[in-house]
């Protein structure tokens, strides 16, 4: 009886200690992130020096340019993420047995800032850029093209190595052993790819892709540097709004950004659910 109570007390104390250890970072995050979201919601609903109004939201949904921005942003982000994931998967299968040097070379773009990759892309691929000069004219012009090919290119170059690292890390843990065991049981290379390799890499690939997708949906240094001026991405649209009307512009920008945040979170939730399907391969 006393033993049980003592044990319950000890467990409670351990729980309290863990909570105390988690508190600093979780409190900081809750304050900053919660504050940011509440702040943005407030700006979108209560323009400076005015009472609460839904005007900013109404403006947003009435603006055809915003609809274009949403479509353009989602399209380039999904395309970038899907291509990056495919490239990462292909590279992973090609180099999984290779040494550290190949992996380090392939991982080179990971610590490089996005804006830097965009700058390099402009130096090489812009009209009159180095590739243009070297080849005497490019078949397509990916920089500032209305389809956003430059954006996709920069994201794939930057994010495929990131996803590759995640996939290779998953393949490092006992995968070769399982693969050998499956081969000895008579599974063909294709069957092993489907039943052994894919289930191993699926969840890190999905988690990484969610991070990539969210970034591509929200960041705007790359579209600003290599994207077309029209249509804009959602973030660019918000940026332009703040430079217009000083009061209502801020509200519209905040509304647009909040919408983008909600969309990212919703997409992430859907992706996580889809990945949970046990026989999804």
């Amino acid at each position: 009886m006393t033993g049980t109570r003592w044990r319950a007390g000890a467990r409670w104390r351990a729980g309290a200690r863990d909570a105390a250890l988690l508190a600093p970072s979780l409190a900081a995050l809750a304050l900053l992130f919660g504050g940011a979201i509440i702040g943005a919601a407030r700006v979108s609903l209560v323009p400076l020096g005015q009472g609460p109004t839904l005007e900013a939201w109404r403006d947003l949904f009435d603006d055809p340019l915003f609809a274009d921005a949403v479509l353009f942003t989602v399209r380039t982000a999904l395309l970038s993420t899907a291509l990056a994931a495919l490239v990462a998967l292909g590279l992973a299968l090609a180099v999984r047995r290779r040494g550290a040097l190949v992996r380090i070379l392939l991982a080179l773009p990971v610590p490089v800032p996005h804006l830097l990759v965009a700058t390099v892309a402009v130096v090489w691929l812009a009209p009159g850029g180095l590739a243009d000069r070297a080849l005497g004219g490019l078949p397509v012009t990916p920089v500032r093209d209305p389809a956003g090919m430059g954006i996709v290119l920069v994201y794939v170059y930057k994010e495929a190595p990131f996803l590759l690292l995640l996939v290779l890390a998953a393949l490092g843990r006992g995968h070769q052993e399982s693969d050998e065991a499956a081969a000895a049981l008579g599974l063909t290379p294709f069957q092993r790819l489907r039943w052994v390799t894919w289930p191993t890499v699926r969840s890190p690939l999905v988690v990484g892709s969610i991070v990539v997708l969210a970034f591509a949906l929200g960041a705007f240094e790359v579209p600003l540097a290599v994207g077309p001026s029209n249509p804009p991405t959602i973030a660019e649209y918000a940026r332009e709004a703040t430079q217009g009307d000083l009061v209502s512009g801020q509200s519209t920008a905040a509304a647009a950004l909040l919408l983008s945040a909600v969309a990212s979170i919703a997409l992430a939730a859907i992706a996580v659910r889809a990945a949970r399907d046990p026989q999804g391969g």
Binding site: L26, A40, G218, A235, A254, A261
Partner: peptide
């Protein structure tokens, strides 16, 4: 806990900045 940690990574950093500027 992991959900709270993941949230800020899913939201545009410009949105975070804009919301915090207010305060």
């Amino acid at each position: 806990v992991f959900l709270l940690l993941a949230m800020p990574l899913l939201v545009p950093s410009y949105a975070v900045g804009t919301g915090l500027t207010e305060w």
